[in-house]
Design a protein around this nucleic acid. Structure first.
Length: 339
DNA sequence: AACAGCTGCAACCGCGAGTTC
DNA sequence: AGAACTCGCGGTTGCAGCTGT
């Protein structure tokens, strides 16, 4: 309901805490407990708002706050939990003893997010983002740039052909997207770290599709763009001269060594179950027995496969099609430069 | 040495949910 | 019942230290 007016009050100190203020706050809380945060500053003799005191205590002064670098285990836990919980920093922090939500949030924003991006994952969806189609506009722009700069090059023809091939592939994928989905996507709620690859291979969002359409529509002098007619795409474009670029509709996980039961039931996706089935040794936490289990109220249990494993297998993303793409594209110096 | 740009982290802000009166 | 209040969360900002030029 109403918003706290405490921080609106003028005359209260803001900014970094001094060691003296820290000392006063710690001494007071050790002696009296924090009680009402709003009343605390006055009682303790601090010229701060209660909110500021609470923040300082919980994020910095609390004796059980663990400081210093995050371990690999902690990092992995954060990644796993974030893939399930999203930006629920407090919920994530509750699984990392001694770490505060603020610290985890900062660590995410400054390290893990970048790491994911570098690895080709979308930090929001935890799904692969470095596929050929999402990079299409950039690839085309690069190809055009190369052509402009080096128009006497003997590679001119090859570059043009490759750019055309990229366009063709885009259209073919659009064709696939516009077909009725015979294989429905899994519900968003079962997207886990382990199916980054699985979803990424077949799960283009509306936005991605729209972007793809826009980028393709922006190709002015392409050999086929003028004939783009939706939804009758398949009738207007011939792909017969291109290799058969199969669009991956399912993903055969190469990772499932540990979850053979799940695999038997859901060969394409690793699933997690809801709270009641929490195992005593939760796989989404480091193996330390001292770490608490996730709360039973709706906290899902993540299966063993980690994002790192998914990442390491991302080169097989797309199965057959990716092999074709590798053969077709990865040899090119342009693509090597991009990589 | 000086400057600019970048990075990481502590702290702030605004909001919504829950509680009290 | 509902206004007033508290608490906690998530996003954002400011700044010190670092790095590159």
């Amino acid at each position: 309901m109403g918003r706290s007016p405490c921080c609106d009050e003028s005359g209260l100190k803001k900014g970094p805490w001094t060691p003296e203020e820290d000392q006063i706050l710690v001494k007071y809380i050790q002696k009296h407990g924090h009680g009402s945060w709003r009343a605390l500053p006055k009682l303790a003799g601090l010229n701060r708002c209660g909110k500021s005191c609470r923040l300082r205590w919980t994020n910095y002064l609390r004796p059980d706050v663990k400081r210093g670098k995050f371990s690999q285990e902690e990092e992995q836990t954060i990644l796993n939990l974030h893939s399930v919980l999203g930006n629920k920093w407090s919920a994530i922090a509750s699984h990392l003893p001694g770490r505060t939500d603020n610290e985890i949030k900062n660590f995410w924003n400054t390290h893990l997010k970048k790491k994911l991006i570098q690895m080709g994952f979308d930090p929001v969806t935890h799904r692969p983002r470095t596929n050929i189609f999402s990079n299409l506009p950039h690839l085309i722009a690069l190809a055009n740039l190369k052509e402009l700069i080096d128009h006497h090059s003997v590679e001119e023809h090859a570059v043009r052909l490759q750019a055309e091939a990229v366009q063709m592939a885009g259209f073919q994928y659009l064709q696939y997207l516009l077909q009725p989905q015979s294989q429905p996507h899994p519900p968003a709620s079962v997207v886990t770290s382990s199916n980054y690859v699985a979803n990424g291979s077949s799960g283009f969002s509306d936005m991605e599709t729209s972007n793809l359409l826009n980028s393709l529509a922006s190709i002015n002098d392409g050999p086929v763009s003028s004939s783009l007619a939706l939804p009758g795409l398949s009738d207007s474009i011939s792909f017969s001269h291109l290799p058969d670029l199969q669009i991956p509709c399912s993903y055969q996980t190469p990772l499932s060594k540990n979850n053979s039961t799940d695999k038997a039931n859901h060969p394409e996706f690793t699933v997690f179950s809801q709270g009641a089935q929490n195992s005593p040794k939760s796989p989404w936490l480091p193996s330390s027995s001292s770490t608490p289990s996730p709360p039973s109220t709706g906290a899902p249990t993540l299966t063993q496969t980690t994002m790192w494993e998914a990442s390491s297998s991302s080169s097989s993303f797309g199965g057959e099609a990716s092999t074709i793409w590798q053969g077709l594209l990865l040899e090119d110096s342009l693509f090597k430069a991009i990589a």
